[in-house]
Design a protein around this nucleic acid. Structure first.
Length: 658
DNA sequence: ATAGGCTCTGTTTTT
DNA sequence: CAGAGCCTAT
């Protein structure tokens, strides 16, 4: 049952793992065994220090990271770590708030609004205030500014003024929208993603007994990806650990890539100031990449004058240098990559699952997707579409949502708008006439609803209602069984609706099937819904489709590739305006973050790295536009790269129909 | 007045 | 590929 820590770890890792109580900051450069260190720390605390897993809190950036670490820790300890809290900040906050929301004036069964819900609600607020105007900022834009303010713990007015800079905006009107939005969320008994963090922190700050309870319970707080914490998360962690001071933070300031979401590199840079007795341990021995790749990585990041200077030290033998290819255009780039992928596969140099193509923005992968399809190469897109935010998933979840939270007007309207002759206006009128509260357990209320519906919808809904609320064979209330609830809605109504509404109804109904399988694990509708809302697209795919297909190459944004590694990495569109992104460069300070993003891309590679630079791109009007090479390429000494000539326009595919 | 169908446009990164 | 905006049918 014991575990030989000294044998599994290098000297620096071992110091981190066996550090005594108190604050510890681990600066873990890319590929230096950060996950290994964290999981061994958990195991060490459990085995050598006798800390029960349930007294540890492990905060991670993604659910995937949490799951991975818990699994590994479990293997090391040789027993279940079920009691260990592990997950994202949003998850941890939600877990606390589910228990104590009433202290903050929320109902215990509050809904969680995803981004789509938030935007809709904001739109409604803008309309209601009569501000819908070409010149008034769009709901999406306001949403992101409000969110930024929340995550920075900053003043909304200042953030808005800051964000819009010189552009003339009606600050007073924007603040009115914000106030109304906050009121509406309250009326809905709902929290958006930011509210989870805001209220999670507020709970601890304003309710000493609650804070004491969790401080007592969480004897050790461990935080992953610390460089990407924002003000709220940082305060949350500091507060939780303030009693015993047992806080272990792991991060790499070079990989801070979420400032646009309110992440504050200063949190990691000022850690020592805030925790003067903290031990600081640097991990610099890289086990992932070849020296050639590390040379490039070190070179790239040298352009950023951050505080914790560190050099990635190679532990692997030298092999080939990273490749730099100039290409004619996006099509050429796509054909080149497909060719190289085929070479890698044919030569046995890499398995499909060991290959990734990275890019700055989702749409950069369009041409490559076409080309891969033509070449009949399967690929797995780490997509930008969030599973839960797809229309059909939200449609079927609107019923359980309303079941849990009778004040959730968004869910109610969504449900009603699927009925014939019911659009936004009618749905709103219904909501008003029903007293802005629809408790599905109340049969009289449901009857009243049916009566208020337009004639075309009445018989349909009456039947749906009857089928959904028919006394079931199963035990307990249907409303408490999310899978059954969704199943009944689908059978009574949604299957037909989907077939009439969507071109790809079959596909969507398959998604719904998978959703039901997932839902079946829950006998608590509220728990199911918050889990759904907090799942990212990646997590959803892991959970619902039993992981990505093992034998396909991957396409991913650099952001989503954080924390992962592949044998062969291609980086697309190394062109100024795309990587770095034009919009990021509008503010000078963002260049450094784009550079860190490039650093993240480079350090994903274990053996092979290709940097691709097309010379031109298509414009909207069908013309072409010359692209200057990415400024980051110029920062790399030419000697560190091997330049490859990609012949002509690339081979024209044999089976091309054009 | 409102629902629903049609066309056009324009895309950073995500818990 | 979805969302805004316009048009038409009720």
């Amino acid at each position: 049952m014991s575990c030989d820590f000294a044998q599994h770890l290098n000297e620096a890792q071992l110091r981190a793992v066996t550090a005594p109580d108190g604050a510890v900051l681990v600066i873990a450069a890319a590929g230096t065994g950060k996950t290994r260190t964290l999981t061994h720390r958990v195991a060490w605390l459990a085995l050598e220090r006798g800390v029960e897993p349930r007294r540890m809190l492990l905060l991670t950036f993604t659910n995937r990271a949490a799951r991975e670490m818990l699994e590994r820790a479990m293997q090391l300890i040789g027993q279940d770590v079920g009691g260990l809290w592990g997950g994202t900040f949003h998850h941890a906050a939600n877990r606390m708030l589910r228990r104590h929301a009433t202290l903050l004036g929320y109902g215990a069964d509050y809904s969680i609004l995803d981004e789509d819900d938030s935007t809709r609600l904001l739109k409604a607020c803008i309309n209601e205030l009569g501000l819908r105007d070409k010149k008034f900022p769009k709901a999406e834009v306001l949403g992101s500014v409000f969110s930024l303010a929340a995550n920075r713990g900053a003043d909304v007015a200042e953030t808005v003024a800051d964000r819009f800079g010189a552009h003339p905006v009606d600050l007073t009107a924007i603040l009115k929208v914000h106030t109304l939005y906050e009121q509406r969320k309250r009326a809905l008994n709902a929290m958006d993603f930011d509210d989870l963090l805001v209220n999670g922190l507020k709970l601890l700050q304003e309710h000493e007994s609650v804070a004491a309870r969790y401080q007592e319970r969480m004897q050790h707080v461990l935080v992953d990806e610390y460089q990407d914490t924002n003000k709220l998360q940082n305060d949350f962690v500091d507060l939780l650990a303030s009693g015993h001071g047992n806080l272990l933070a792991v991060g790499d300031d070079f990989q801070s890539i979420y400032s646009w979401r309110g992440a504050e590199v200063q949190n990691i840079l000022s850690f020592e100031r805030r925790h003067p007795e903290a031990q600081v341990i640097k991990l610099e021995d890289n086990y992932r990449s070849t020296p050639g790749i590390l040379d490039v990585a070190n070179r790239v990041i040298a352009g950023n004058p951050e505080q914790y200077q560190k050099v990635l030290r190679a532990t692997r033998p030298a092999e080939v240098k990273p490749v730099y290819v100039k290409l004619v255009d996006g099509g050429h780039q796509a054909r080149y990559i497909v060719g190289k992928v085929q070479q890698l596969l044919d030569s046995g140099a890499a398995q499909p699952s060991e290959i990734v193509v990275l890019y700055r923005s989702h749409y950069h992968s369009m041409e490559l997707q076409l080309e891969l399809t033509r070449a009949r190469l399967d690929y797995y897109l780490m997509s930008g579409v969030r599973f839960f935010e797809q229309a059909h998933i939200k449609d079927v979840c609107s019923l359980p949502r309303l079941a849990v939270n009778p004040a959730d007007s968004l869910a109610f309207m969504r449900l009603m708008e699927m009925l014939p002759k019911v659009g936004p206006k009618k749905a709103q009128a219904l909501w008003r006439d029903l007293g802005q509260h629809v408790n599905l357990r109340d049969a009289a209320k449901r009857a009243q609803l049916t009566k208020l519906l337009p004639k075309d919808a009445q018989p349909l809904w009456a039947e749906v209602d009857a089928k959904i609320f028919a006394p079931g064979e199963g035990e307990g209330d249907v409303l408490d069984r999310p899978a059954e609830l969704i199943f009944r809605l689908v059978e009574a109504f949604y299957r037909d609706y989907a077939e009439e509404t969507f071109e790809n109804a079959e596909q969507r109904l398959e998604d719904v099937e998978e959703l039901m399988t997932f839902a079946a694990k829950y006998d608590d509708t509220a728990a199911f819904l918050s889990e759904m809302a907090l799942l990212t697209n990646l997590d959803a795919e892991q959970n619902l489709h039993a992981g990505p297909p093992a034998q396909t190459i991957r396409l991913s944004t650099v952001h989503q590739a954080k924390g992962l590694e592949w044998k062969a990495v291609f980086v697309l569109w190394m062109v100024d305006g795309m990587f770095p992104a034009a919009r990021s460069l509008e503010e000078a300070a963002n260049e450094a973050e784009e550079r860190r993003l490039f650093y993240v891309a480079v350090t994903r590679a274990k053996d092979y790295l290709w940097l691709c630079q097309p010379r031109m791109r298509k414009t909207r009007e069908g013309g072409v536009m010359l692209c200057p090479p990415s400024r980051f390429l110029a920062e790399i000494d030419p000697g560190l790269l091997q330049e490859e000539k990609a012949g002509g326009m690339g081979a024209v595919p044999r089976w091309s129909r054009w």
